[in-house]
Computed example of a mutant assay.
Amino acid sequence: MLHEIQGSHIIAQTPFDDRGAVDAASIDSLVAFYLKHGADGFVVGGVSGEGGKLTAAEAELVTRRFIAGAAGKPVIVGVSNPGTAQLAQLTAQAMDLGAAGVMIAPPAGLRTEEELLSYFATVFGLIGDVPVVLQDFPGSTGVWMSVPSILKLIEAHPQIQVVKQEDLPSLEKISRLRAGGGRRVAILTGNNGLYLPQELGRGIDGPMAGFSHPEMLSGVWRLHQKGEVEAAHDLFDCYLPLLNYEAQGFWGVAARKEVLRRRGAIRHATMRQPGPKLTARHQAELDLLVRRVERAVAARG
């Protein structure tokens, strides 16, 4: 069950070819790359995975291909949608394909706790007994969920088995959720992994983030689990400049896809429009950052 998950769950990119079509072969190589570097699970169809740019048929193809290559690791599918009927349809499709669960964020426009609770009561009435990751990401949705509201949702809906905590500042909210009592759910965190060592210290169950070097996410998690906190921080520090560069919204996603291309994980760094294209200056900045990461990791041994 999802409430027991822990470790590094990768927000997977969607590979496109040089003409902007879904590159199925690169999905296979990307999944293998993520697994090689310690992924414990995957999220497909998320915001940074460009899920909103896929047709229904493409979303099915991408989900099916990731599940086929995941070697039994859980695959969670992002199904957030302004329309509850569409959300229910996407959820049924994902579960039919073998997903471990779905991720849902509240839609833009909710302003009160009453509206929030009513929305999710409607959603869970439609999708039934499906394991859900509740995504708390007001930077994207514009909807701020208080700790008491999240705890009410957890108690009212046993389908919620994970909270993806991306509200900033994240640390106190994580601690308050952990101290809230009631039914325990897993807490995973995103925001590109920028605060991962501190969030691990607050009791999260692992990262749910995208990064061009997923071995950092899994490595920091495993070191922290072994009690090697200083070593976890040292490893994190090797990657921080590049991690920070990739945290620039969709510009950062474009940079991440380029680094993944350079590392042989995908054939093309294409982002589907609307989306940024890296300039020669961006490429030069990446050259420097990647060299510095490689040097720092080599020096650490």
Results as ranks from 00 to 15, higher is better:
V102L: 12
P107D: 02
T122V: 13
L116Q: 11
T122N: 12
I76S: 07
A85T: 14
I150E: 00
S149L: 03
P107R: 04
V77W: 00
M95K: 01
A85R: 15
L110V: 09
F120V: 02
R111D: 08
M145H: 02
S140R: 14
I67F: 08
K152C: 04
A85G: 14
S146R: 07
I104W: 03
G98W: 11
L110W: 01
P107H: 00
G125D: 10
I150L: 06
F124V: 08
G128I: 07
V143N: 01
Q89K: 15
G128S: 05
I67V: 12
Q93W: 06
T141P: 10
S80K: 00
I76T: 13
A71T: 05
G72V: 12
L116D: 01
L126C: 09
G72R: 06
M103D: 12
L134T: 03
F120G: 03
V147A: 03
E114I: 12
I150H: 02
V130T: 13
L97Y: 11
E114H: 14
S118V: 14
L90Y: 15
A99R: 00
G69S: 09
G142Q: 00
S140I: 14
L97N: 05
I76C: 10
D129W: 02
T141Q: 04
L151M: 13
V132T: 10
I104C: 04
A108S: 12
V123S: 06
P106D: 00
A99M: 03
G109C: 05
P138G: 08
F137N: 11
L87I: 09
V143E: 01
G101L: 12
V75H: 06
R111M: 13
G109R: 05
G125T: 11
P131I: 11
F66A: 06
P138H: 03
L126H: 10
S118P: 13
M103S: 15
T122C: 10
V147K: 05
V133F: 09
P82V: 13
P82M: 10
A100P: 14
A85S: 15
A92F: 00
L110C: 01
F66D: 08
A85C: 09
G125N: 06
G128H: 01
W144A: 14
A108P: 04
G101E: 10
P74G: 10
Q135S: 11
D136I: 14
A99K: 03
P107V: 07
P74L: 11
A71F: 05
T141W: 02
L151H: 00
G69T: 09
V102H: 09
Q86V: 14
V79C: 08
S149H: 04
K152P: 00
V79A: 09
F66G: 08
V75R: 01
A88I: 02
P138F: 02
M103K: 13
